[in-house]
Design a protein around this nucleic acid. Structure first.
Length: 239
DNA sequence: GCGACAG
DNA sequence: ATCTTGTCGC
């Protein structure tokens, strides 16, 4: 029986920065960094958030893709207010409430979540992808566009070339070239997934562009939702 | 003490 | 994240 990492973890909004760090320290041991995840997932979801700083608004989007065709088969958004200030390393507390609300609005249950941000590659080894994995119980992967922690050498210039991302003497992720000659992305395990497996999934999601199709579709959706929220009066909701 | 710092 | 023109290259 594949483990889901124990009993469900509720999402609890922290009162301040110190409490947020304590929550991460407490939950980090419950992450499953090995997996394996689904051998051949039928669906993969992408999550992303867009901000309108000046209006104190945010839109969280989830798109569910057919893992083979990469067509969008389901999607949901949630427009709301940032739930926490932006503090590097505590990023999850800002976006999670809206992301969870969007996930709740899906009509299907994706088999894998690809997050816009890191998982294990985090100062306390508990980035957004890990937290989202524990709370949803789903396998998750973190894909960051820029590093938060760690150092590396390489990777080679071609699609598929990669190098270990190391921090404090441990491998916390993989720096992966998803297209020939483009800047690499930073892949790390979120939950219920091994690193090699995560890298394979990301490559399967990047047949053409630097970023996974999941991230690209979710990005377009949350931007559109934010624009609509401004055009249609400004009331929240998500439909 | 000084800088760095996912989105 | 977001604010933004032009520019290099396929």
């Amino acid at each position: 029986m594949p483990s889901t990492g124990g009993p469900p973890v509720p999402y609890l909004p922290p009162a301040d920065v110190a409490e947020a760090r304590r929550v991460q320290e407490e939950l980090r041991s419950r992450v499953d960094l090995v997996g394996p995840g689904p051998a051949a997932p039928a669906t993969v979801a992408g999550l992303d958030v867009a901000y309108a700083q000046d209006r104190d608004l945010l839109a969280a989007a989830v798109t569910v893709l057919d893992a083979t065709t990469l067509d969008v088969v389901d999607e949901a958004v949630c427009v709301g207010r940032p739930a926490f200030p932006y503090v590097p390393g505590l990023f999850a507390f800002r976006e999670m409430p809206a992301l969870l609300a969007a996930l709740d609005r899906l009509t299907t249950r994706p088999e894998l979540l690809v997050c816009d941000g890191h998982g294990l590659a985090h100062p306390r080894r508990f980035g957004l992808a890990c937290h989202l994995g524990l709370v949803t119980g789903l396998p998750t992967i973190g894909v960051g566009k820029t590093p938060l922690v760690g150092s590396w050498t390489g990777p080679g210039p071609e699609r598929g070339d990669s190098a270990d991302l190391c921090d404090e003497g441990e491998v916390v992720g993989r720096v992966l070239r998803t297209q020939d000659g483009v800047r690499p992305v930073f892949v790390s395990v979120g939950h219920r997934m091994g690193l090699d497996e995560a890298v394979e999934r990301v490559l399967a999601l990047t047949p053409r562009y630097r970023l996974p199709e999941t991230t690209r579709t979710a990005d377009r959706l949350c931007r559109r939702a934010l624009a609509d929220a401004g055009a249609s009066g400004g009331d929240l909701g998500g439909r």
